[in-house]
Design a protein around this nucleic acid. Structure first.
Length: 581
DNA sequence: ACGTACAGCGCG
DNA sequence: AAAGCGCGCTGTACGT
């Protein structure tokens, strides 16, 4: 492997024509740390077939305007840029206004190809070993990338990582084609810059408002604790030798303890869960316990961690997104997870935009039901959506025998539970509980069973789709774009029916994100959040109307491309915060 | 001292 | 035969 270490911009010049016209460039960065807001690029490695690996001394290049200009030119070419975990590298390039495109990501490819039996790790070492049979020395002393002078060994390792990406891409391409996941791969590769930008820009939080909410919640928890003392007795606070206060005698976070407490007070539940407690909702102990849990959970899982996660340099939250995390292809979010912020406006109002900017928020309307209509081919559902009908009303009308116009709000609400539950093979008992818990709708077991049979009589396509899944149970599933997932044990009907639907919905929003990041390139408009079927943008206030129109159109177009039989609807709104309208 | 499993609950 | 699914996060319980 030939390596050229470039200490000054002028040494890059002779290679510029090759780089600009290369069909494939493998890129890797070495950085002084993992946080793009606190660390910087130390090396940029560029590998092109038939050329020595170029290792660019980034600080030396970026000191001069010419160096930055040259780097931009390299990345501006139409050639495919190969990365391992592009999300990371792209974030470090954003401050340089460099947006490489198109991208091939070997890590995403490996995730996409994953099947049971493969190594779970998608690190460069694991992927190179599995697909190329090449062993990378693992804990090689990569040393300190922040050091002023790098050792020759460091430069060689850096170059090797870039060089191997070229071979890895070749190996992965044939596997991608064999697996029939080419279309899904394209969607993922186009989406990765949206994810990188989303993590980089983060989301703004009104911290004072958040702290006020935390204090209110803390007071509510203490009030609930006071009422609980009537049952538990006052806690005896013991001060340990180290001066820590330790509450003795009871622990309300321990379920075994809570269960005995409930039993002692005539609440004979099997578990301490909210659903078991529901029949005792009039009991003051159950009420106090529920109130305590809600407040305590909010504080420990949401309010405190998020307050602590505000970034010292940007003052914003920078959640991490797992682009292919759920086995269905859905994204996950963590540290902190903003995909599980309560819908309560008190929480969501804190997610807003800074001075002179605003949020543009859009979500797909009933995307999973539309996907299910497409996958099953159910003609009644397809017709309803084509005619712009409200499917929940249609189902309510089918359940009650009433004309669509006479369906009450309550009936529509119940139909919502019926639609979402029964599509995935929920049983009558499950439906009854689900309707109560999720939609506050009461129905008897008999009613639930009746709804169930009426539902499958009305939606024959759903019934036959379920029948097909049962008759031909497969160990692997696919979304409409070809994304593949393998089931470990014999999958249940709920899993067989839900996963391709959930996965196809993920394909759709990822396709939209890819288009979006391309269209928003260099603009002062950022993707700040994604919550499964919802996209949050932040833009200058005066750009909001055009941004809303762009967002709506991009999302609808993505869905319509993947669901040829079923039109999709996106509602986009301009708003000061994430709280409901 | 650490890692993993589970319950419970927030979101879609 | 019977069955909604997918996540992340917290604290407890239990393993090494």
């Amino acid at each position: 492997m030939d390596i050229l270490f470039l200490r000054e911009p002028k040494y890059l010049l002779p290679h510029l024509p090759v780089l600009r016209s290369a069909h494939v460039i493998a890129v890797d960065l070495e950085t002084t740390g993992l946080d793009p807001h606190l660390s910087s690029i130390r090396l940029i490695q560029l590998a092109v077939e038939g050329m020595p690996v170029l290792v660019v001394d980034a600080p030396a290049f970026l000191r001069e305007a010419e160096g930055l200009a040259l780097l931009r030119e390299v990345f501006q070419g139409e050639g495919i840029k190969v990365f391992q975990n592009a999300k990371f590298d792209l974030q470090f390039l954003i401050p340089l206004s460099i947006y490489p495109r198109p991208v091939f990501d070997t890590m995403l490819a490996a995730r996409l190809l994953y099947e049971p039996g493969m190594p779970r790790s998608v690190s460069l070492a694991a992927v190179a070993d599995y697909y190329l049979g090449e062993t990378l020395n693992k804990q090689e002393q990569r040393g300190d990338w922040a050091a002023q002078t790098l050792t020759p060994a460091q430069i060689e390792y850096a170059a090797r990582d870039a060089a191997i990406l070229l071979r890895l891409r070749h190996a992965l391409i044939s596997r991608i084609m064999e697996a029939g996941v080419g279309k899904a791969a394209e969607i993922e590769f186009a989406c990765v810059r949206a994810v990188a930008e989303m993590e980089f820009h983060g989301i703004y939080l009104d911290t004072p408002m958040w702290r006020t909410l935390a204090e209110r919640t803390s007071a509510a928890r203490d009030a609930a604790l006071e009422s609980l003392y009537a049952y538990t007795g006052k806690p005896t606070v013991q001060t340990t030798l180290f001066g820590e206060e330790k509450v003795m005698g009871f622990n309300l976070d321990s379920n075994p303890y809570v269960l005995t407490l409930l039993h002692r007070n005539g609440i004979s539940v099997q578990s301490t869960s909210a659903s078991d407690l529901y029949p005792y909702r009039a009991h003051p102990l159950a009420q106090a316990l529920t109130a305590y849990r809600k407040a305590q959970k909010s504080l420990s899982a949401i309010l405190e961690p998020i307050a602590a996660a505000v970034h010292p340099a940007t003052g914003r939250l920078h959640p991490h997104y797992g682009q292919i995390a759920a086995f269905t292809g859905r994204m996950s979010c963590g540290t902190p997870n903003i995909q599980q912020i309560p819908r309560d406006p008190a929480f969501r109002a804190c997610f807003c935009a800074p001075q002179s900017r605003c949020l543009v928020i859009a979500d797909y309307s009933q995307i999973e039901l539309r996907v299910a209509a497409q996958i099953s081919g159910d003609s009644r559902m397809i017709t309803a959506y084509r005619e712009g009908e409200d499917l929940h009303r249609v189902t309510a009308s089918l359940m009650t025998g009433k004309p669509v116009g006479q369906v009450t709000k309550q009936e529509r609400q119940a139909a919502k539970a019926v639609n979402f539950g029964l599509i995935y093979g929920m049983g009558a008992v499950g439906l009854q509980q689900y309707a109560r818990q999720t939609y506050g709708v009461e129905m008897t077991a008999e009613q639930a069973g009746l709804f169930r049979s009426r539902f499958f009589t009305a939606y024959r396509g759903i019934a036959s789709w379920h029948q097909r899944l049962k008759d031909y149970p497969s160990k692997e599933g696919r979304t409409l774009t070809g994304r593949r997932f393998a089931f470990t044990e014999t999958p249940s009907l709920p899993l067989l029916s839900n996963s391709p639907v959930q996965g196809t919905a993920a394909d759709i929003i990822k396709k939209a994100l890819g288009h979006l990041s391309h269209q928003l390139e260099g603009a002062d408009t950022w993707i700040v959040g994604v919550v499964h079927d919802e996209i949050l943008l932040e833009c200058p206030a005066e750009k909001a109307p055009e941004t809303a129109a762009l967002l709506k159109e991009t999302m609808e177009k993505a869905a319509n491309g993947i669901l040829p039989m079923v039109p999709s609807v996106v509602e986009a709104k301009i708003s000061a915060s994430w709280a409901e309208k």
